[in-house]
Amino acid sequence: MKTKKPTLFNKYGREELEKEIQNESFKRITVSLYRYVDIKNPQIFRDELFTKWIELNVRGRIYIAHEGINAQFSVPEPNWEKFTRSLEDYDYLKDVPLKIAVEDDGKSFLKLTIKVRKKILADGMDDNSYDTSNVGKHLTASEWNKYMDDPNTIVVDVRNHYEHEIGHFKGALCAESDTFREDLPKIKEKLKGNEDKKILLYCTGGIRCEKTSAFLRHEGFQDVNQLHGGIIDYARQIDKEGLESKFIGKNFVFDERRGERISDDIISSCHQCGEPCDDHTNCEYLDCNMLFIQCSNCKEEHEGCCSEECKTIIKLPIEEQQKIRAEREKKGLMGYKKSLRPKKITKN
């Protein structure tokens, strides 16, 4: 009798997954990890992790490549010890630092997705543009605060513009990019002439700083530093040690939560009415799916849409929506791009 092989991918729809997670009687722990390490066979490693973690009811988004692993996921609290023991089964994951979410409603991820990619973090750069074994100095929250007070220090936000918009370190320089692959050349240009200055880099959990610091060191910057564990770990350290938080606003996260609050400051505004707001949403019209900031009043008025046009389309019969989609595909307009989002969306 043949042994039935486990299904190595998610086979349920969003509605079913949402209902399932709403009915869970236990808490979940949202966590992230990354490690640059030479993985000999990413596909085999991917399948082994999926088989192991699906049994533990882990849900999340994990990328694996020859260069390492980048993962964000949630683990049922009752399975936490089994999960941490599973990390020790692999040299790739032994003693890997875990960044636990600051705010967690247990619904950060609906399913488990593990993908093999060329890189764990798409940077648009040639491999010879940096060496991830030669990175900047890792700083604790206390050290970070100390260096931020130095007027000769340059603080650089390695994240995208929509992340920076709702929360950032005071006075931080931002590349104003839509994706990380645009960041490195823009950051280099903005820092031109400051190769001898102390550079402080930060991002969400640290992975983008690893590549950025390696890139800057390769480009001749002498004093490159990075926030250890990113904003997530910074928030934990300042809370534990009673330090001043120099981060204001929300920390954007790439899961169902969209953000976790670090300070009470609301530094952005609704893109439709201009009222103070830092809640991101995706347009309810799936073929648009624009990411933008929308307050609760505008969400109700516009039914979760970014414009009157999208609000009109979602009310059309499916057949009509399919025709519109076909026309958009002919014109090459399909494919969600955050850069298409205007600075402010006005009411029609």
Results as ranks from 00 to 15, higher is better:
residue 1 M to C: 10
residue 6 P to I: 04
residue 9 F to Q: 13
residue 11 K to A: 14
residue 12 Y to T: 09
residue 16 E to H: 12
residue 19 K to N: 06
residue 20 E to M: 11
residue 22 Q to C: 14
residue 24 E to L: 11
residue 25 S to Y: 09
residue 26 F to M: 13
residue 31 V to S: 03
residue 43 Q to H: 10
residue 45 F to L: 01
residue 51 T to W: 07
residue 57 N to Y: 03
residue 59 R to M: 03
residue 62 I to G: 06
residue 63 Y to T: 07
residue 63 Y to A: 11
residue 66 H to A: 12
residue 69 I to Q: 05
residue 70 N to A: 00
residue 71 A to H: 02
residue 72 Q to C: 06
residue 73 F to D: 03
residue 74 S to A: 15
residue 76 P to Q: 00
residue 76 P to C: 01
residue 79 N to S: 13
residue 80 W to T: 00
residue 80 W to P: 00
residue 91 D to A: 01
residue 97 P to F: 03
residue 105 D to E: 10
residue 109 F to C: 02
residue 112 L to M: 05
residue 119 K to A: 11
residue 119 K to E: 14
residue 120 I to K: 04
residue 121 L to H: 05
residue 123 D to H: 02
residue 124 G to F: 04
residue 126 D to A: 14
residue 127 D to S: 15
residue 128 N to Q: 14
residue 128 N to E: 13
residue 129 S to T: 01
residue 131 D to G: 05
residue 139 L to R: 01
residue 141 A to G: 11
residue 143 E to S: 04
residue 144 W to C: 01
residue 145 N to H: 09
residue 145 N to K: 15
residue 146 K to G: 04
residue 147 Y to M: 11
residue 150 D to Y: 09
residue 150 D to C: 08
residue 155 V to C: 13
residue 156 V to M: 03
residue 159 R to F: 00
residue 163 E to I: 01
residue 164 H to L: 01
residue 167 G to S: 11
residue 167 G to A: 09
residue 174 C to E: 09
residue 174 C to S: 15
residue 174 C to Q: 14
residue 175 A to H: 05
residue 178 D to G: 14
residue 184 L to G: 03
residue 188 K to F: 04
residue 191 L to C: 06
residue 198 K to R: 15
residue 198 K to F: 01
residue 201 L to W: 05
residue 209 C to L: 10
residue 214 A to W: 06
residue 216 L to Q: 01
residue 218 H to Y: 11
residue 218 H to A: 15
residue 232 I to S: 08
residue 232 I to K: 11
residue 232 I to C: 05
residue 235 A to H: 06
residue 236 R to H: 14
residue 237 Q to T: 12
residue 239 D to P: 08
residue 242 G to D: 00
residue 255 D to P: 03
residue 258 R to Y: 09
residue 266 I to W: 04
residue 268 S to D: 06
residue 268 S to R: 10
residue 273 C to A: 13
residue 275 E to P: 03
residue 281 T to Q: 04
residue 283 C to Q: 14
residue 284 E to H: 13
residue 291 L to W: 04
residue 292 F to Q: 05
residue 293 I to S: 13
residue 293 I to G: 12
residue 297 N to R: 07
residue 297 N to Y: 11
residue 299 K to P: 06
residue 301 E to S: 12
residue 304 G to D: 06
residue 307 S to A: 07
residue 308 E to R: 10
residue 320 E to M: 07
residue 322 Q to H: 14
residue 323 K to S: 12
residue 325 R to P: 07
residue 326 A to N: 08
residue 329 E to G: 05
residue 329 E to C: 06
residue 329 E to W: 04
residue 332 G to L: 10
residue 332 G to H: 09
residue 335 G to F: 09
residue 338 K to G: 09
residue 338 K to A: 12
residue 341 R to Q: 10
residue 341 R to F: 06
